[in-house]
Design a protein around this nucleic acid. Structure first.
Lengths: 231, 231
DNA sequence: CGGATCATTGACTGGTGTCAACTTAGGTGG
DNA sequence: CCACCTAAGTTGACACCAGTCAATGATCCG
């Protein structure tokens, strides 16, 4: 394993809470893994054996109903922590959306280490509290928003996540979606057809452009924000 | 304030993580409050000034869309921890559903105390991780389940929460709902009319009985579980 | 007893889901 | 390089579940 000191997510990952010498100790128990798009790192209901950090790529957390209906519960980007610490079972699956690199630890070892280093545990607590806030915001969407509001909200979120120039007020921005249509549908609690129709509607209205299926151009920011708010 | 040692939630609350003498220290900063049903303890978007424990009663966490659509994000029962520790804002409102007693702390003081006592912080972490698991399960419901599945799931959850004898396999149980129909609708992401119709349907099928609007009798457990699973 | 609130029921609408056909893009092998 | 094949996405027709609006009924409380 490469040194943590030159890790791409050194600043943003949970490990940031540790001083150098402690970091070296933790790193000895870690292991880098590469996942191909579509590969699942852990399954819902399985023993929680692994936790880790996302180094590169995008993963999704998901849950399925017995009949196969699928709901995506969250997305993990580089720097994010994945897996269920301090619990015997993983309550959701974690699957690579793009090709992905992760740095994993055996949960038992991580738990033990974290209990001994309260700065690490505190960082995990802060992350978990923020994630809970974010998940609850998502619940409002799943419970109360229309298809158009969901799709617009999703596009705005992807934009602010993937386009740094967006924050500067840039009017027209372009990005590549890491998700296919079915994955977007699972994320928003819709069907693939409904997602596709909302995309088409936004395109015909001139709000967005879709140069190819994985690319989105935001043409009218205000209109998109209005659509997300339900006007 | 009464002594923590005879607190009704001594065993189940977060304070349980502390030894007696530390508990005494924390308790000096705490304060008991009574809330009437409908009273709101904190508002979404407000500064996070308070955290605390539920001593008695039921509260709901909720979030509103700008146009007034309301989504309940979770329920807090006696022993549960409420409020946003380690964060400047409360991202949701907390409102008493029934008359309620809570034991509150100023967030700044609680945060400081928790940082100094990692057993308390660890307990909060475990609670937060469990809550996150629970919330994510709820997301599957909001995103993918039909009205009948939601209402049946809700009734099953209320039963196992409110009827101790339920776990023993007792066939017919009765309980009083802490929620009105509108509150159930907000919880399930439905309208009041749809909730009412599902109740009526279950009653006509003989699965449940509704002696008065706040009371539920489970007559056919298997049928209710089947309805929750979508058959 | 009267008024207010809450819940139920009915009629109707409309937004999403479903099912199926068609289109496009991408990849493979001749 | 083209032809073909497959997977992914789009579009259309239609059905149905749940939302909306409105009227009625039941409870609670002063």
């Amino acid at each position: 394993m490469q040194s943590c000191s030159q890790c791409a997510i050194r600043e943003s990952a949970i490990c940031n809470a540790l001083p150098m010498e402690k970091l070296a100790e933790l790193s000895r128990t870690g292991r880098q893994q590469t996942l191909r798009a579509g590969q699942t790192l852990m399954w819902e209901g399985d023993e929680s054996l692994l936790v880790g950090n996302v180094i590169d790529g995008v993963l999704k957390l998901s849950l399925s109903a017995p009949d196969g209906r699928d709901q995506t519960l969250g997305i993990a980007y580089p720097g994010d922590f994945i897996g269920r610490a301090f619990g015997s079972k993983s309550r959701h699956s974690v699957t690579a959306v793009t090709d992905t690199q992760v740095c994993t630890f055996r949960r038992s070892e991580f738990d033990e280490f974290a209990r001994k280093h309260s700065s690490l545990e505190h960082n995990l607590l802060e992350r978990t509290l923020s994630e809970l806030d974010r998940v609850r915001q998502w619940m409002l969407m799943l419970g109360r928003m229309t298809a158009m509001e969901r799709v617009s909200t999703f596009l705005l979120e992807m934009t602010s996540r993937l386009c740094p120039e967006w924050e500067d007020g840039s009017e027209t921005v372009q990005f590549k979606l890491p998700f296919g249509r079915q994955e977007i549908a699972d994320l928003l609690g819709l069907t693939i057809e409904t997602v596709s129709r909302q995309f088409t509607k936004l395109r015909l209205e001139g709000t967005i452009d879709i140069p190819d299926r994985r690319s989105i151009v935001i043409r009218d920011r205000d209109a998109l924000e209005a659509a997300a708010a339900g006007d």
